[in-house]
Write a protein that binds this DNA or RNA. Sequence first.
RNA 1: GCCAACGUAGCUCAGGGGUAGAGCACUUCCUUGGUAAGGAAGAGGUCAUGGGUUCAAUUCCCAUCGUUGGCUCCA
Length: 646
Amino acid sequence: MIKITFPDKSIREFQDGVTGQEIAQSLSSQLAREAFSVSVNGDVWDVTRPIFSDANIAIHKWEDKEAKEAFWHSSAHLMAEALEVIYPGIKLWVGPAIETGFYYDVDMPEGKVISENDFETIEKKMLEIARGKHAYIRTDMPKAEALEYYTEKGDEYKMDLISGLQDGTITFYTQNNFTDLCRGPHLPDTSAIKAVKIMSIAGAYWKGDDKNKQLTRVYGITFPKQSMLSDYLTLLEEAKKRDHRKLGRELELFTFSQKVGAGLPLWLPKGAMLRERLEQFLKKLQTRYGYEPVITPHIGQKELYVTSGHFAKYGADSFQPINTPAEGEQFLLKPMNCPHHCEIYKSKPHSYRDLPIRYAEFGTVYRYEQSGELHGLTRVRGFTQDDAHLFCRPDQLKEEFLKVIDIVLYIFKVLDFNDYTSQISLRDPNTPDKYIGSDENWAKAESAIIEAATEKGLKTVVKYGEAAFYGPKLDFMVKDAIGRSWQLGTIQVDYNLPERFDLTYTGSDDQKHRPVMIHRAPFGSMERFVAVLIEHTAGKFPLWLTPEQAIILPISEKFNEYAKKLLQLLKNYDIRAVIDERNEKIGKKIRESELRRIPYMLIVGENEANDETVSVRKQSEGDLGKMSPEEFSQHIKNQIEKELQE
RNA sequence: GCCAACGUAGCUCAGGGGUAGAGCACUUCCUUGGUAAGGAAGAGGUCAUGGGUUCAAUUCCCAUCGUUGGCUCCA
């Protein structure tokens, strides 16, 4: 007998070799049906795998991440089998479960491609196999035998995978006529997979290296119930409605023009108004935190970026240098503001008493992003960073870093971004040539970030290889409407550029010392931040930010005069309002104002004109009743105060 | 940059080898209305751009540009 400990700490005895499924069955037969995987001493196992020693276990149902992973991983195998049937000669690379569904990377037979028209065929084949209720059977195989199996099959991809594995740990899973090298875990059998959707198709370089052959990546998702698939697809439709590219056009915030160029956003008046309010908000905050504004030009001598190292790292793939009539003179569109700010620091000598110095600039930069990467406002070729560079003494570094975190967190709080992740981006120790500076400086910078993040109690993920080439970063990531993660705020510790630019200050010992730099951008870029803000709010911006706070809707043209008088009054109260003077019925004016996401509709007709009031209707909520213009302005002021409360 | 798909009116989209169509938006007229679409008429397109095939191309083929979903990249 073995002792099984459940998550609630209760302990029960079972026969040696009992499976997760049998344990579930002993609790309830429904649980046994719904158990997709089981954690055994922290490792996730098949529910059909026998347990031979005392263990802590947790049974995972669909709701659990561990169950979905097994479900979707099994589905990837199912799809692989279907693909093998439909495209004989197809070769398989890897097929993991992902956050929503799974994919499989495949090498298509010569001359064959998968297109969207083929999705239905694949789905049908998968469902057909799933209905056969084929068990996923786990087998161990010695390395030599595994290699032999794939040599026979002529599959160089799997052979590559196996050659990297340790002998004795190699397992295979078989369902129906399909066997795949796999660690597992998997479902007991294929019958749980009831709904299947192939989502998309994409190219993916083998092993993620663009020098390698490009494989075909097929994305899919499956569910244990048809209704769950429908719900999921509805959810995707809803998310599409929040897409900033769609709302940006509908709400007249920004546009692009082929003639201006790809990835170069044009801010329309309403978008510009929104962005300027955000900038003012941050400027005010930064003034409180002791930042000083600076302004630098859009171009700089190439040498400046040679010094900083940016040119060596990014020059070849960037906008090419601008030549002048002078022989040999070259300028770059600035891809970064830091070199300019370093030169400002150098414009006069500094005492240790002056530090920290904090230079802030909404600096517009240009980077030649790859054409395939451009995406709405989130990935563009010309954008404005809410940039600042802090020059401080080593003993001030931590405090300064903590204060920057405070700024970022305050912004996120005011704008109601609760669902962010903080990522500590460190360098990849395996590729030291990607970075500049000494190991010692890197170690100092990395520990500074880790300490500061810990002190603030941030829940962070550590990612190696994500650092900037001159220093590690603390990044704040937020997801967009379709689930993609974007970096917004970033804080970076840099010991290297101060050396490269030979920045110094005089210490109390009358000796020259090197300052430490912090690069920081709490929004990241205005473009990306506004994009994510649009998706986060679905276009319903906070009152303090929104371009149009109120719209006056006269019941008929007879009341346009009163509406104009009212508009002037509201302007005096600093309320951003417009009038819909068109010859349309009130229902239509309301509908369109709702779609324009204007927070307040002020309906004025005979009654209001007579007693000098407005009927207030709140967007997506409805009638608030009659108010005097004074009361309304007070209402707005109260709302804004609430929004900006610390 | 790479893989796949797409590009028709301001927007959303239909169509298809014989010089184009709907709804919304726009203009004009009628209507002057009370909380999510009043009615009528009109105007609007070199069917992304450039080549090729054809008696004839918006439609078929190629290239370029752009857009979309991924991959690689992201100072």
